[in-house]
Amino acid sequence: MISVITPVYNGERFIESCIKVVIDQNCPDIEHIVVDGGSTDQTVEIIKQYAEKYPHIRWISEKDKGQSDAMNKGIAMARGEILAILNVDDYYEPNVLNRVAEIFKTLPEPSLLVGNCNLWNDDGEIFEVNKPARLKFTDLLLGWKINPFPANPSAYFYHTSLHQIIGNYPVDDHDAMDLHFILKAVQVATVKYVDELWGNFRVIKGTKTYHSNTNGQTIQRIEKILKIYRRDLPLFQQLQLGIKRDFLYIKDWILVRIKYFANKPQELPLTLKNKLKKFAIMLNF
């Protein structure tokens, strides 16, 4: 069984569509656990209406200590051996849960299964497709700009038993609990990446992620967390990782500028234009 956990607080704008997304998956062996934090809008009424019609929906509504606490409550309620976190404003592509259930039949326990995710803005446009193909612990420690990690839990799934090894989501962390989970999970689980589109992540006004991105806090927070995990590596691995990061940053810097001047050769001195053309041909720009 797949247990889909949705934490929500005053989410009347999206809760109905979130519930419908899970229903429309037409997956016969699921439960949808909705953990409400004591909403004061119409969220609970909407949940009740659907729970009365669909027995796979289980829910509670009570005050909590934030999103991580709500997710942990859902984990404690979960009956499935496979776990999914679906935030109220995110959604799956069609037939993802059946696809995931089939793949898990071939995976050892505990496993982490990761797909691709669309990132949407307020204009209903996809501004990025997250394809986290490189999921080794040391690859993730290179940083988001070099090697992006999974951007949203709508595109990854894992064995519920994984929490018995790495613990639950940190209750006092309201912003980076997903990153902590991924960094811990890849160290102990069998990790499988599938190059298929599974999730959709709305980075829109009013959400924590949007606010954090706008203020420039997201990258700072990520780098601060990665530094903590890097310091736990043996000294030799820290040195290797640092050299690799520096090399990749320099490589990206050079490639960006080659591409720029390939498109604007008039900004280069005449003596460099021929060399640039050769580089451009080699790099397929």
Rank of each mutant, 00 (worst) to 15 (best):
260 Y>W: 10
231 R>W: 09
189 A>F: 03
185 A>N: 10
245 R>V: 09
141 L>S: 06
269 P>F: 00
216 G>H: 11
213 N>C: 09
274 N>M: 07
151 A>S: 13
236 F>L: 14
232 D>F: 01
238 Q>P: 05
173 D>M: 02
168 N>T: 04
201 F>K: 08
181 F>C: 03
221 R>V: 14
269 P>W: 00
193 Y>S: 05
134 R>M: 12
155 A>N: 10
191 V>C: 03
220 Q>T: 15
171 V>M: 02
248 L>H: 06
218 T>W: 15
135 L>F: 10
201 F>V: 00
143 G>F: 01
272 L>D: 05
130 N>L: 02
140 L>K: 08
136 K>S: 14
206 G>K: 11
208 K>I: 12
212 S>E: 13
243 I>Q: 11
173 D>I: 08
182 I>D: 01
207 T>Y: 13
144 W>M: 05
184 K>T: 05
203 V>S: 00
246 D>H: 04
238 Q>H: 08
243 I>C: 09
210 Y>H: 15
214 T>Y: 10
174 H>M: 02
196 E>P: 00
140 L>V: 12
264 K>S: 13
212 S>K: 12
158 Y>W: 14
219 I>C: 03
209 T>Q: 11
132 P>L: 03
157 F>N: 10
135 L>T: 02
159 H>L: 08
271 T>K: 06
258 I>N: 08
145 K>N: 08
198 W>H: 05
275 K>Y: 14
222 I>Q: 13
189 A>D: 02
210 Y>P: 06
136 K>V: 00
193 Y>Q: 09
167 G>H: 05
253 W>Y: 14
222 I>D: 12
256 V>Q: 07
202 R>T: 04
262 A>R: 01
254 I>K: 12
221 R>D: 12
209 T>P: 00
148 P>I: 11
130 N>T: 05
206 G>P: 10
173 D>W: 04
239 L>T: 14
201 F>H: 15
163 H>P: 08
213 N>I: 08
130 N>G: 03
176 A>G: 04
169 Y>V: 00
223 E>V: 08
179 L>I: 12
190 T>S: 13
236 F>E: 09
209 T>A: 03
220 Q>D: 12
268 L>R: 07
187 Q>S: 06
162 L>D: 01
203 V>I: 14
138 T>L: 08
271 T>N: 07
253 W>V: 00
214 T>C: 07
177 M>S: 07
130 N>I: 04
169 Y>W: 11
268 L>Y: 09
199 G>Q: 07
205 K>G: 10
259 K>R: 13
173 D>T: 06
169 Y>F: 15
243 I>E: 12
153 P>A: 13
252 D>R: 15
230 R>D: 00
140 L>C: 05
254 I>P: 03
220 Q>M: 13
250 I>R: 09
205 K>S: 14
209 T>I: 15
253 W>C: 02
143 G>T: 03
168 N>A: 02
250 I>Y: 04
205 K>T: 14
